[in-house]
Design a binder for these strands. Sequence first.
RNA 1: CGCGGAGUAGAGCAGCCUGGUAGCUCGUCGGGCUCAUAACCCGGAGGCCGUGUGGUUCAAAUCCCACCUCCGCAA
Length: 312
Amino acid sequence: MKILYMGTPDFAVKPLKALIENKYDVCGVVTQPDKPVGRKAILTPPPVKIEAENAGIKVYQPQTLKNGEGIEILKETNPDVVIVVAYGKILPKDFLEFSKYGCINIHGSILPKYRGAAPIQRCVLDGEEYAGVTAMQMDVGLDTGDMLLVEKTKIGENETSGELFDRLADMGAQLLIKTLDKLQKDELKPEKQNDEESTYASMLDKSMSPVDWNNSAQQVHNQIRGLDPWPVALTVYNGKTLKLFRSYLTDSLGSGEAGTVKAVKEGLAVFCGDGKPVIITEVQYEGKKRMKAADFLRGNPIPDGYSLLKDC
RNA sequence: CGCGGAGUAGAGCAGCCUGGUAGCUCGUCGGGCUCAUAACCCGGAGGCCGUGUGGUUCAAAUCCCACCUCCGCAA
């Protein structure tokens, strides 16, 4: 079974590793071109490329798959099946249909919900109870292909998108191996998606970062953990941005006015629109490193009852 | 040359402008109080103040210069 693997970010590394460990014949890896990253705009290769090169697999980084450029790669590598995990580009119809078993995608949600770019983060942001991964036979639509296998998991109360990402990447890797196994035994039963139940998980951006303390504590908590590795929830303190990384809910502090602050042992409690507090445990102040909220408070004491709303 | 912040005790910060004894909150160690404590009281240890074989000065954490590292914004 010859496999062409397509993927770009960290999420796609684990499934690729799984293929290699399970002795699948990965005849090539397609990933996005290197991109400038960071303050110095250093050209950085995608995580998948690094992994592939370590394994001695040939890497392709086409700017586009259109105009037959994708087909060229297929002709050269001649795979039986193409595996796509968070590649980041649309695959044209002729590309999808070229190889024997077409293109199979591992998607980070329980389809048909959360089709699109940011399914994992959207699940957390929405406060969903379950997340999962779906193996799907790709068609020309966006995550609309027939479902092959699904794996579900419960989202932890305080789990961040980043943590869920890691877990789902492992699950996706296992699911991929299972899918290929069944594919070879001809045991897969494609199932159509119910389009009426579908939802779309659009990309995140920085405009989602500012916290509105008038929202409920649960909403704020979901925002903080949902935006965790990026773009990160933030509020303004003393005219400077304060990033909020981790939080949890409690009902042991009574209630307070939206936006007001109280220092507690675990960190910084901020009361929200429904009068309940969210305890913030990890922050980063502008120009400073990420640190425990309790540490931040030692050097930047905020008086109890201070309102963050007037800073926004 | 994209804009900007920061490197001082184990942690987080102040001190720098207006050079002259190393300071705060917390942790840690010892003691006390308490039925008890993440509470309170007393005491102690712990710093080549990012690097320089730099400059100015009677004297540099502090002023000037160069370099290193970390970070926020923008992309």
